[in-house]
Simulated scan of single mutants.
Amino acid sequence: MATIKRFPWINHFLGSPTGYIVHLQKGKLSHEGVGQAFWFRPASSVLSEVPVDDQELPIMFHAITRDHQDVSVQANVTYRFSDPVSVAGRLDFALQPGGAGTTAGREQVATIIGQLCQSHAIDQIAATTLAQSLERGVSELRGLLAGALQADARLQSTGIEVLGVQVLAVRPESDVERALQTPVREQLQAEADRATYERRALAVERERTISENEMASKIELAARREHLVSQEGTNARREAEEMAAAALIRAQAEAERQGISAKAEANQLELVGEATAAREAATMAVYKDMDQATLLALAFREAAASLPNINNLTITPDLLSGALAGLFQTTTPAGK
């Protein structure tokens, strides 16, 4: 931005690196260029500052398609002032006394370029349908507007060079756009639903596979348990059979032992009986040759051994006479 310092009857101008200054002194070109610095009399001088850097101009306008649909076009035009002197002579880029430039020149350029873009774009869109405009309108309009603006005689004579055109969007009205988006949204929703169903089906299939694996595992475990129970039963049966066989062997051994013991006891009893009988026979043989009085005395001795102890014995005459009478009666036949 240029700066102007004011002094009495004279001012000093200091330009900027992006502003091309055109100084007319009494209608004649006195100074021109970028970054100028000079003194001038304000009463007889006219200053114009034309920017030499690239300028960006956003443009938006409406057009009607062949099927009577309204579309909006958003574009951006990049341009620069290739001939600042011609621009200063045809457009208003005058500087204010304080050094600030007017906006009239930029507004004029925006109006010129905007009208050119709109006129060419309307002709192009009017020959296409809405579907065609939305499908290939951006690329077609970009090439059309770039060629038309770069070849426009008015812009060239003014000193304006168009560097490029970018068409950002070609959009229908909001309700039409929503209507056009509905099939795509429905299709996307259908695709999303299909993906969801496939994901659910895959999850169900995986769950079924997991359930089958669990069932197969349970069946295998049941089969192994059945085999284990059968093996345990076989082992228990074998153990019982072995225990029964062992018990039978023990019983047979015990029976044989008891038979041997009984036989031994019987033999012992037989031997004892034979010994006792032999003793008795020997005793009887001894007693056979003894007299009656000796036998009676032995009998009394044997009886006395089994009688209780008698501390006092009283023999009365009656008892003694009776005993003697019985004794004599017994001994008398023996004497005969």
Rank of each mutant, 00 (worst) to 15 (best):
Q74M: 11
S230I: 14
H68M: 11
L145D: 01
F61V: 08
G33N: 02
E280K: 01
Q132G: 14
A244F: 07
A253R: 03
Q115N: 15
A281R: 01
M215V: 15
T332W: 04
S211F: 03
L307R: 08
I21A: 03
P51E: 05
G326F: 09
A245L: 12
G233P: 02
L95M: 05
A278G: 13
V286K: 05
A236I: 15
Q166M: 05
V286Q: 05
F81G: 01
Q150K: 09
G164R: 00
L313I: 12
R41G: 13
P183A: 05
L324Y: 14
F38C: 05
D175S: 15
Q150G: 05
V170D: 03
V109F: 03
G15M: 00
L95P: 01
A100M: 11
A282H: 03
L324W: 15
K5N: 11
G147H: 05
H120C: 09
G35W: 02
Q292V: 15
L324V: 15
A131V: 12
L155M: 02
I4D: 01
T128A: 12
S306Y: 07
S139Y: 09
V167W: 00
Q96W: 06
A126I: 12
A303H: 08
S139V: 13
M243W: 10
A305S: 12
F328W: 07
L319F: 13
E265L: 12
F328K: 08
P308Y: 08
R178A: 11
L295F: 14
E177M: 08
T111G: 09
A236M: 13
A264V: 04
E280F: 06
R6F: 08
N267C: 14
L168R: 03
E220A: 15
L319V: 13
R224V: 10
M243Y: 11
Q181W: 04
L168Y: 04
A192F: 07
L320H: 13
F38Y: 14
G322E: 05
A146M: 09
E270V: 06
K5E: 07
D152P: 02
A325E: 12
A195W: 07
P8V: 06
G233K: 05
N213H: 11
T283C: 04
Q118Y: 04
H12D: 06
D54R: 06
L134N: 02
L188D: 14
V50S: 01
L116Q: 06
A278C: 08
E241M: 10
A293D: 07
T330Y: 08
F38V: 01
L149K: 00
S174L: 13
D70K: 07
T332I: 03
